[in-house]
Amino acid sequence: MRQVTGALAFVLKASLVLAVLVMFAAIVIQVVMRYVFLAAPPWSEELAVLMFSWATLGGLALGVREGFHVALTLLPEALPPAPRAALGRAIALFVAVLSGYLFWSGLRFMDMAGGSFSAAMEYPTEILNVMAPIAGALCCVFALEHALLPEREA
């Protein structure tokens, strides 16, 4: 399981770095084209926002794996080690179940709202909408890893 999640996390991180760089490049091109050539490309903003969506949803999943999401830690911090670890597993399990629901919800959404297009680039919105089930699946796998193999945290 470790190897699988490790490989998934590697691919995820690579895709996130790429998304941020494309987002950055699209906006720089937009400014330069508008200011220097008086002609902003119609696709730049939409491409940047598409990349931002992945930076956000993929980032949600990376946060589950790396545990960087913000939480109120007052109660867990007050607990002795054993109950604290148990609470951590329970929360990870909750996140896994919820992410499974998000995965299913995302598949339904793709199915029901298919066949439409973005405004500028006219890409099929499935390209955007598929991010929800992918993020759900990744969150679920990473949360299960925490719930079943919690020793990595220590």
Binding site: R34, L38, A39, A40, P41, P42, S44, E45, E46, A119, A120, E122
Partner: peptide, 22 residues
């Protein structure tokens, strides 16, 4: 203009400059 090919196309056809912007 709105981020839509029609609006960009209109200004191009009229000889103007369209800047798609949020």
């Amino acid at each position: 203009v709105l981020q839509s090919p029609i609006y960009v196309g209109m200004y191009t056809a009229l000889g103007g400059t369209a800047v798609p912007m949020a």
